[in-house]
């Protein structure tokens, strides 16, 4: 699977996938005018990748400083899609929600996602 690299802008995160270690990173801010446009390429990539994913561990590191309410909805859509893969095909997927110690708002958002997920490994990781 090819690597993925979307550069950050002032209001969209950097999205990178490293095919050597199977780590997807989402980093920065997320509050574009139209979030669906931004995430559609990520979703397309993700679907293709999940189709190819076998036994290896797929890790997603999310380190966001700020995201708006529509990004929050899109993030949940991603997590639910991943959870489906875990539940149906027993895939090994880990999400690390990375936050700054000073940033209790981001930590809380992470906790709330975690509360809404069942089978997906969702770790809250302090930087």
């Amino acid at each position: 699977m090819d690597s993925l690299k979307i550069k950050a802008t002032k209001c969209t995160p950097e999205v990178t996938f490293n095919a050597e270690n199977n780590i997807l990173e989402i980093k920065g801010d997320s509050y574009p005018e139209n979030i669906t446009d931004f995430f559609s390429s990520v979703f397309t990539w993700l679907e293709e990748y999940l189709g190819e994913l076998k036994n290896q561990v797929f890790t997603i590191n999310i380190e966001l400083n700020y995201f708006n309410s529509s990004s929050s909805k899109l993030l949940l859509d991603i997590f639910e899609r991943l959870e489906e893969e875990v539940e149906k095909f027993d895939k090994k997927i880990i999400v690390n929600w990375i936050y700054d110690a000073e940033h209790d708002n981001i930590e809380e958002y992470g906790e709330e996602f975690k509360e809404d997920l069942n089978s997906l490994t969702f770790n809250l990781v302090q930087k």
């Binding site: 139209n34 979030i35 529509s70 949940l76 709330e112």
Partner: peptide
């Protein structure tokens, strides 16, 4: 908080772009 989570889980809400989550947020 409960309402926010409920609305976030539901799909798009008519002409609302973010499931109407903005006001709840």
């Amino acid at each position: 908080k409960r309402y926010y989570k409920e609305q976030r889980r539901q799909g798009k809400n008519g002409n609302s772009q973010g499931a109407g989550l903005g006001f709840i947020e």
